[in-house]
Design a protein around this nucleic acid. Structure first.
Lengths: 135, 135
DNA sequence: GGCCATCACTTACTTTTAGGAAGTTGCTTG
DNA sequence: CAAGCAACTTCCTAAAAGTAAGTGATGGCC
């Protein structure tokens, strides 16, 4: 199997828990391109609610992954940017992006008689309730 | 900044949405070490509820990331293992682990004294409510 | 054969988190 | 002074996760 995986310890659990909150990965991905303001993030993600964006930003700031800079030059604007800890996350985001490019199909193959993967049809692009199972 | 990040497209959103569900990363991390049974995963994670583990496993199977093999050899046992798509997720998990090693501090040591070796089956400890903010 | 135990899940019910949208604050523009 | 941003909050509802108890197919033991 794989030889040098980090052990499953508390550290990993904490990191997975962080990324396990909805939108965290996407926010980080956007900030990898440079500082962004609240509204830009909201627009960039498109389907996140402002309530949650605000919450996530606070979480990330509390973790020391991003920093908030308020520019009071009259039109008060705040800007979020990655700290070194956040910058360092880029490889995770990059690998996730590569995996997505390789494996995520944007269109659910109708009848893959022998196709290997069924793939995650881009349902994430909508403000999806993630799954609408009435069961 | 970083030069070759994959663009923020639907594929990335879908992948981030997948990892954005609690426990997904941890389950994948454990399966990277080889096939595991339901109970082993439950124990390995420790604080996941069986209800959610079952759900997550179904999700992952539906995405074609893991496969479920039922071994009916009398003591009926099921085993979960990664598909190629799942194996390929290795680098993401690995980078996440490395980042965690570098940046995550195990600060809140809520060690209830130092229990001798009560080890397993101690369900007494409630699963982390992720944050118990009274504010 | 009756009884308890294990494994792999379900079901029923509760708490936490996320989504939708309107409201707030501070300042600018018409 | 009404209107409009930007950046958040607040309120209320809808999903997701947590907790515990139950189910069904063995298998052991006495």
């Amino acid at each position: 199997m794989h030889d040098d995986l980090s052990p499953l310890c508390g550290r990993f659990l904490a990191a997975a828990d962080l990324l396990g909150r909805r939108w965290t990965g996407v926010i980080l991905r956007i900030l990898m391109d440079g500082p962004r303001r609240f509204g830009e993030l909201a627009q960039g993600i498109g389907t996140i609610s402002e309530r949650v964006l605000s919450e996530r930003l606070k979480d990330l700031e509390a973790e020391g992954i991003i920093e908030r800079h308020v520019d009071p030059g009259p039109p008060i604007r705040s800007e979020y940017r990655l700290t070194q800890k956040g910058q360092d996350f880029w490889k995770v985001i990059d690998e996730l992006g590569k995996w997505a490019e390789r494996w995520v199909e944007l269109k659910p193959a109708p009848a893959p008689a022998q196709a290997p993967a069924r793939s995650v049809a881009v349902k994430a692009a909508r403000a999806t309730p993630r799954k609408r199972k009435t069961a």
